[in-house]
């Protein structure tokens, strides 16, 4: 019926394609190239000396890079599972209280519509050793004052504060998605379970989680990829120092930007590019993992 819309289609696509070509596809290829340039000076566009693998070696030999990888992985691999489990429980609870569901849903969504820097600063005050609420609450349980984000804060204290902020920030989206996912589950399953007098825990374990599993998996992977790109939250909580001690909470993205900021120094832009390509490869691995796992496992 519809034939040969070729030329017309390209005209409709042109504005998007031009923008994507200039600001997405070209930068992707160019980042790969830059990461191999020798003695690259971006603003003068000097790339005389040919190609090298040295940029990657320099990144891998940098202590700060491994610190950023450790920080990013600890943050991602703890905050993502915790926030998924908590948001699942919240979504299931919301389902059982139809009356106040909308009210609670609105409150739970608030963190999504905030500015990470502004709220991060509020968390910094909450976690302040003397003026924060967190230590007041802990003192009720007899726990001594902890320096979470100040100059004497331990690595775990800083990570704990960053973790709480990250989870707080990421619950909103997951609750919303899981709640709408739950609405799509056929009521028949629950009716059948009730006739069998199944307990709530059994229903949760045997019906809700399996039926939601494609969605849970999808959200796990996308949140993991998102968490691997953490940056604004660190700046919000700790400022440009990126930690209670300089760079103590540096993430991979922050590492890329640190090198980028020194673009005036010969070669530094290539180090930034190399680090960004490493981040890309890490996220790529998780994306591929998702396709493989979802093809194999979740099907109902």
């Amino acid at each position: 019926m519809e034939t040969k819309n070729n030329l017309k289609a390209w005209i409709y696509l042109a504005p998007m394609l031009i923008l994507m070509a200039v600001f997405t596809f070209y930068p992707l290829i160019n980042a790969f190239m830059i990461s191999f340039y020798k003695d690259y000076q971006p603003l003068l566009n000097l790339r005389s000396a040919g190609l090298t693998l040295r940029n990657y070696l320099i990144v891998f030999n940098n202590q700060l890079f491994w610190k950023s990888v450790l920080n990013t992985f600890v943050l991602a691999f703890i905050s993502v599972p915790v926030s998924i489990i908590v948001s699942l429980f919240i979504s299931v609870s919301l389902k059982s209280i139809p009356k106040l569901k909308g009210f609670f849903q609105t409150i739970f969504f608030l963190p999504y519509v905030t500015n990470a820097i502004a709220v991060g600063m509020a968390f910094a005050v909450l976690f302040h050793v003397n003026y924060g609420l967190v230590n007041v609450v802990l003192s009720l349980f007899g726990i001594d004052k902890i320096d979470w984000i100040g100059g004497t804060a331990s690595w775990w204290a800083q990570m704990g504060a960053l973790m709480v902020f990250t989870i707080w920030n990421s619950l909103a989206f997951k609750i919303l998605v899981f709640t709408s996912g739950l609405e799509n589950i056929d009521k028949q399953y629950y009716d059948a379970a009730r006739i069998d007098a199944a307990s709530k825990w059994t229903i949760f374990k045997r019906i809700t989680v399996p039926l939601l599993s494609p969605l849970i998996l999808y959200i796990s992977i996308t949140s993991l990829i998102g968490a691997l790109k953490a940056y604004n939250s660190v700046v919000g909580l700790f400022g440009e120092r990126l930690g209670a001690q300089p760079y103590s909470m540096i993430t991979i993205v922050a590492f890329v930007y640190k090198y980028r900021a020194d673009f005036a120094f010969t070669g530094f832009y290539s180090y930034a590019a190399a680090a960004s390509i490493i981040l890309f490869i890490i996220t790529l691995i998780f994306s591929i993992l998702q396709t493989v796992v979802s093809r194999k496992r979740v099907h109902y």
Partner: peptide
């Protein structure tokens, strides 16, 4: 392309 970290684009886009 939605899966690609935007940080990669920033480097070249700044040069552009």
């Amino acid at each position: 392309t939605m899966m690609i970290p935007g940080e990669i684009f920033v480097l070249t886009n700044f040069l552009t």
